[in-house]
């Protein structure tokens, strides 16, 4: 008598499970297609994959997760990986795979389409889009004219406790690496110690920082440029309606660092199809799409996106840093830990 409820529950569970998983089983027919691991958001990249399939007839099946989880997964999978291509959200993850010898060098004609500063010096990956570090400020509470012309100005006592940053964010860490590269270890340490002494507020990600600044709860935030343009696009009235505004530092300041998202082909997977996908991502259609939908910078000459308020990539004037030098993340993390900014 009492045994019945259990068996009924189990039977129901089994039937539901089988029905549901058969219904979802449409992912099994990826035989001839490309498998792409990507840290980019599904909503933003899926339409582009669909366009690629329309154009070339090559199916694309993607695995979406964070770039770092995927890099760890790819390292764990080694040569048995089902992935053909890795489209990463940051150069660091590609650098880690490059160091492990997991990526095939790309064709020189693809590499040459992108300025040398935005690709791997070994040719293992190529930048697809660029993004710039910016300072956002609460325009209702902060007078733009008083804002500093460089990151050193942020160490002034008047900004104590008023700056938000995302310590676990890859772009923040890339900025610190750039600081080490341009100023040397001691110079970087001294800036970080000053920054820490100014009691900055740690956030989990850039979106939370921007939201806090826009609501007027936080005065300043160190984030990437595109979050502002994305928020503007999602807000009625656009950029002008936002309370949060962008402040750019003087040309060449480390606070203007431009980093990239990039693509690499896994070892043993280089063929006609992977080459076409890389070619497509660097083509005019994809580059325009990235700019207009993701508000990121195209890296190919001649692409002029229609994004209100977005300055040209050439006008950004970031610090003079070789991006392939930004692969010394270990030392950056060691320094951050030493200073106590994690």
């Amino acid at each position: 008598m009492r045994a019945r409820p259990l068996s009924r529950v189990l039977t129901t569970a089994l039937v539901t499970a089988l029905l549901a998983t058969t219904a979802a089983g449409c992912g099994d027919d990826e035989d001839e297609g490309l498998v792409v691991y990507t840290g980019r958001n599904e909503n933003l990249i899926e339409p582009l994959f669909e366009r690629f399939t329309e154009e070339t007839g090559i199916e694309v099946t993607a695995r979406y997760a964070t770039s770092s989880a995927l890099a760890a997964q790819l390292l764990e999978e080694g040569s048995s990986t089902p992935a053909d291509v890795f489209l990463s959200q940051d150069a660091g993850a590609l650098g880690a795979l490059q160091d492990a010898g997991a990526l095939v060098p790309l064709a020189p004609e693809e590499l040459d389409r992108v300025p040398a500063q935005y690709r791997s010096s070994e040719g293992a990956w190529v930048g697809v889009t660029g993004r710039a570090r910016v300072l956002v400020y609460d325009s209702a509470g902060v007078d733009a004219a008083t804002l500093p012309t460089g990151i050193d100005g942020l160490l002034a006592p008047e900004y104590r406790g008023r700056i938000g940053y995302a310590p676990s964010n890859a772009s923040w860490q890339a900025f610190v690496t750039a600081l080490r590269v341009t100023r040397g270890e001691d110079g970087a340490r001294s800036w970080l110690e000053g920054f820490k002494a100014n009691a900055p507020q740690a956030f989990d990600n850039n979106v939370l920082i921007l939201d806090a600044v826009d609501r007027g709860e936080l005065d300043l935030g160190l984030i990437n440029h595109y979050y502002v343009y994305e928020k503007a696009a999602a807000t009625e009235g656009g950029l002008d309606a936002l309370n949060a505004e962008i402040h750019r530092f003087a040309p060449g300041d480390a606070g203007n660092l431009v980093n990239v998202t990039g693509v690499g082909v896994l070892q043993g997977k280089a063929d006609e199809r992977t080459a076409r996908l890389v070619d497509f991502l660097l083509g005019e259609e994809a580059q325009t799409y990235f700019a207009e939908v993701n508000k990121e910078y195209p890296l190919i000459a001649g692409v002029q996106p229609d994004v209100p308020g977005l300055p040209a990539l050439a006008d950004l004037q970031g610090p003079d840093v070789d991006l392939s030098q930004l692969d010394t993340l270990e030392q950056t993390l060691a320094l951050l830990e030493e200073v106590g900014l994690t």
Binding site: G27, Y64, E230
Partner: peptide, 23 residues
């Protein structure tokens, strides 16, 4: 996220995708 068969979407993964673009 790491182990789902390619093409599988659950409510939790969709939720993650949408919040990933702050939507």
């Amino acid at each position: 996220l790491v182990l789902r068969p390619l093409g599988y979407d659950t409510l939790a993964t969709r939720l993650w995708t949408e919040t990933g673009v702050a939507d």
